[in-house]
Amino acid sequence: MIRVEGVAHAYHAARPVLEGVTFEIAGGEKVVLLGCNGSGKTTLLKILDGLLFPDAGLYFFRGKKIDRRTLADAEFHRDFRRRVAFLFQNPDAMIFNPTVRDEIAFGPRRLGLEGADDRAETWARNLGIAPLLDRPPFQLSTGEKQKVCLAALLALEPEVLLLDEPTGSLDPRTTGWLVDFLQDLSVTTVTTTHNLSLGAELGERALVLSEKHTVLYDGAIEGILGDEQKLLEANLVHIHRHRHAGVEHRHFHSHDWE
């Protein structure tokens, strides 16, 4: 469904954020994109959503090249936006409609899907936010906003859901709820995180970006979780001293400190 070939991107010529990134994702796969801060995870998601375009390399979605030219075609653009949805790290960036109902119905309305209002009701119910439908979304809590944004995307019934650090600002209970919810979802997902234990819950395949912005690992998530050397290289675990039963020693840690 997704094919990325040798993609490179840089915001400033001297500082690349992605280099020679190549991978394929089949329909229905749940991929976890792991990498430390600044490794290029968010940029890669923005490229997959056709919001940024690679400086070099190619991106194909369902066999069709995605670039400025192909997305300039109104019909293709609409179709692509319906099929691929992107949950931004900060839900505030997504919210701008007067009510939760309008927020959820916005995408379906603009992208020409039928029954936008019914979709809003359905997805609000599915995400447990039906009582909020007539409230302005910007006065909700972060967890509620996150659910509104997720409902707004799922109302499009997309084929691919791109999630950027979806649990970054959630409390433990909402995080647990979101993990369960995403596991039951039957769409292709690409989820970024630097939290290893969460990564293991969110997908069966891991794609790890190195600090040099290249693909360091691509395979089963269990494979990377056991590879301390690679995790250290990707800056996903750290070594520090600490005490066990009064004996001080050093070993690998992935406390998943947020």
Partner: peptide, 18 residues
């Protein structure tokens, strides 16, 4: 952050945003 506001709208909109 401002860039994300712009992109988030683009991500859910047709080619010509109203």
């Amino acid at each position: 952050l401002f860039d994300d506001f712009r992109l988030a709208l683009k991500s859910r909109s047709p080619a010509r945003i109203g």
